[in-house]
């Protein structure tokens, strides 16, 4: 399609950039704590340059190859903003406010030819809408990446293996024990058993909200793996309501050592290792 827009926009690049910057800075939600005006100006000019270059080819379809550099810049920018904590509004405003800048310039240029103005406006509108959609899509993808990374981090930090006594390990499990978590728990536990030569591992499930058949199966698997390493497992922290539920569900934990509290599990562990803990004579401090 032939369009006059490209050539005249190129002529007016300076005004365009000014109008666009003006629109962006006018928005009260702009995060000047996350981005300096100078940086914003640089990003804006870079995008505008590549956009004008693509428009110069006479192509107006954002999906075509000539727009690839433009799409790349927008994607990069949206992902970066998602990671930095910009809101969707701030991010989409970047492209949206360019639309308004285009309109204000075109309005003047085609003032005496409404039909042409309309025709050109539709072209620009479609193009920038597509770019807006790309902005939002990449922004959301960026946010999802952030969430996934956080989930991994939580999984890592929330499965510690604690050496409570010579030969005794404790694993407080907090949250849902899904397949991915079980894998991490199991790996950490088995590695620690080898490293410390421990003979007993206490899995404390006080922090697990629901024990359904899947969680139970994961617990049973962990116990079996521990036994294969020549160590024994005690499951502690089984709350009264969880105990009743496990029984109704029909899960058989009868060949696994279970205790209500971590303290009683520790007592059992001492017993199994032949360790005796006694209250000694109180030594005078002075």
């Amino acid at each position: 399609m032939k369009s006059k827009t490209a050539s005249f926009l190129k002529k007016n690049k300076k005004q365009l950039l000014e109008a666009w910057m003006h629109n962006q800075l006018a928005d009260s939600t702009l995060r000047d704590d996350l981005i300096t005006n100078e940086e914003l100006g640089k990003q804006s000019e870079e995008l505008l340059d590549s956009l004008l270059k693509a428009l110069g080819s006479g192509e107006f379809n954002a999906d075509s190859d000539v727009f690839q550099p433009v799409v790349d810049i927008i994607s990069e920018l949206s992902i970066t903003r998602a990671r930095q904590g910009f809101s969707p509004r701030e991010t989409s405003l970047f492209v949206m406010s360019l639309k308004r800048a285009f309109y204000s310039i075109m309005d003047k240029e085609f003032a005496n030819d409404p039909a042409l103005l309309y025709q050109e406006a539709v072209i620009i509108n479609n193009l920038l809408d597509t770019l807006s959609i790309i902005t939002m899509e990449t922004f959301i993808k960026g946010r999802e990446e952030v969430i996934l990374r956080q989930t991994d981090e939580i999984n890592e930090i929330s499965t510690p293996v604690i050496r409570v006594w010579d030969g005794i390990l404790a694993l407080p499990i907090i949250g849902t024990l899904d397949s991915a978590r079980t894998q991490i728990v199991m790996e950490n536990l088995l590695q620690m058993i080898v490293e410390t030569g421990s003979r007993i591992a206490i899995l404390d499930i006080s922090g697990v909200p629901t024990v359904d058949s899947l969680v139970a199966q994961h617990l049973i698997k962990t116990v079996s793996a521990t036994r294969l390493m020549g160590a024994e497992c005690i499951i502690s922290g089984i709350r009264a309501e969880i105990a009743q539920t496990i029984v109704h569900l029909g899960i058989d934990l009868s060949n696994i050592n279970t205790k209500a509290s971590l303290a009683s599990a520790l007592k059992l562990a001492f017993n199994m290792l032949g360790v005796e803990v006694r209250r000694g004579e109180k030594k005078s401090i002075i």
């Binding site: 629901t210 359904d212 058949s213 899947l214 009264a240 309501e241 009743q244 539920t245 569900l249």
Partner: peptide, 17 residues
């Protein structure tokens, strides 16, 4: 009750899974 809640949630968990 807490036991009731736990039973309901566990049943729900099985069926959703």
């Amino acid at each position: 009750s807490l036991v009731g809640q736990t039973k309901l949630i566990t049943a729900a968990s099985e069926l959703v899974r």
